[in-house]
Design a protein around this nucleic acid. Sequence first.
DNA 1: CATATCGATAGCTTATCTGCATCGTAATGA
DNA 2: TCATTACGATGCAGATAAGCTATCGATATG
Lengths: 311, 311
Amino acid sequence: MNLEQLGSFVEVASLGNFTRAADKLHLAQPSLSRQISALELDLGAELFHRARSGSTLTTAGEALLPLARRMLADAASVRHELAELAGLGRGRVRLGATPTLCISLVAEVLSAFHAAHPAIELHLSEQGSRLLLDELAAGELDLALITTSDAAAAERFTVTPLLVEELVVISSIASPPVTPRATIALDEVAALPQIVFSSTYDLRRTTDAAFRAAGLTPDVVLEGAEMDALLRFVERGLGVAIVPAMVLIDRPGLRSVRLGGPALTRTISLARPADVAPTAAVEVMQHTIAATATAFAARAGTSMRRASIVR
Amino acid sequence: MNLEQLGSFVEVASLGNFTRAADKLHLAQPSLSRQISALELDLGAELFHRARSGSTLTTAGEALLPLARRMLADAASVRHELAELAGLGRGRVRLGATPTLCISLVAEVLSAFHAAHPAIELHLSEQGSRLLLDELAAGELDLALITTSDAAAAERFTVTPLLVEELVVISSIASPPVTPRATIALDEVAALPQIVFSSTYDLRRTTDAAFRAAGLTPDVVLEGAEMDALLRFVERGLGVAIVPAMVLIDRPGLRSVRLGGPALTRTISLARPADVAPTAAVEVMQHTIAATATAFAARAGTSMRRASIVR
DNA sequence: CATATCGATAGCTTATCTGCATCGTAATGA
DNA sequence: TCATTACGATGCAGATAAGCTATCGATATG
């Protein structure tokens, strides 16, 4: 018996459906099935009546449910109490991140952090990597999530690589301009109607450089978009775009193809002031970011991987 | 955070000493150290002040302790409640085992089972494998732990191999008749003063056959001993003996040497009637036996391994 | 009768955990 | 003062378990 199994059990009990519970738990359905059956084997009793009209609790399941809830509640209490003790009852974290990260990784980080420590004040600065580092140096930020092509910052800051992420080509799932395939070459992309980011994006520099290096001129139908707008345009079939794999998470309206040849990647790193000792709240935020990044990498499959040097 | 870590934490907290807690938990000290530090990392707080004069709880540790205890108690309650539900509030298990097994594996099985299900009546029959199978056939036993050299029983019973165990040569740790070494040859053993079991033991048949096959005549100083007596004689330096590796667990007064050449082994199997459906209590006993056997194999190192076919 | 839904199973890969050996440090005794 | 001992931490290798994808079987539903 372990707490994850109990959590899974409670979720299935309240939803009455393995598949949906698995979704909610960010778990594949077979994994959930196995967790429950492991728990059943361990306890020596069936916990659910499996029927197509939903899974309902057996007598044993009903006996387990209240205690399972209490154990999970106790676990949450422990975290809460220790957080209070660590001085996380109040405090502030000022996080900076690039726009691409804000709608994906950062969203999850902040919601997880806020759920765990609701009393901590959160500030977010959405800027390009360059500006973020300036703010960090000026003491206006505690932490910054940046994309490090140039690791020139390593002098003044402690920079920890988190994720290495491929850039992929996205298109509408409704009217893809090309047939589905494993990879697409850069010159093929150049021939497709393309939507590109505003030139303030770090990403824009990377893709521009890649096309220029290949002697290609992309067929840009729309320029200057911010991330969210760009994704909507692509979803509507206005064109394709080159984006980090991460933004695809929870975007079912998009299809993606990996770039063939030398894959374009970006490294997402966490920067913090080298000299200042982090507060308790900031330290916990670092952990949250590291854990969330790992979870993203696991969920995204091969298009993203944990950077070798983690914390 | 998981229940094992919490159990370890509680144990360390009450003993104030990692090494001793590890012993009590049947865990190596490094493993315990890692469990605690994993828990500390997870909770973001040190739980113990490590000092040579003992490890004491930090404020965070003190906050955790009562909740940890409650969660563990809840886990125990769950098992207890479900056991009641499964009809384990009363019942009976009649277990048979060979004498060698009774003082080692069976002792642990029965104490674990009784701790979990105190209301179940336990009967133990200590006999040779042959007689045990007769009792099983006569319906006088529910389960029998036997050593299967001859798998002739497979017809009438369901026989599940549990462990394959080497026979080793033991001697007193105080006055070993030979210098410590990796293995010892059978002819060397024959030359040493030896204590052998009563001829009613299955083991006796195995060792006699091995010596005979090698054309050797062992120097028997004492014959006819029962297991416990034999071990005491060996501890006092009266002679050496050939015993299953299992009996060495928790016998610090003995040193053992593995037999060189073709190692003598015995396979410990669980036999049950093929036709009768087991009661809930008997089924749980089977699980307990399987789990304990696995734990033994893990603890005993290379001289014992789990049989390939395990439930 | 074809299809969709739902949970279980198989095979594989990856992450975690355990144990052994060893280290570093602080208290103890000669 | 220095060797010894006790205790917890760490590096490494092997074993265990947990995850995912793909697929299956069974049961409702159109």
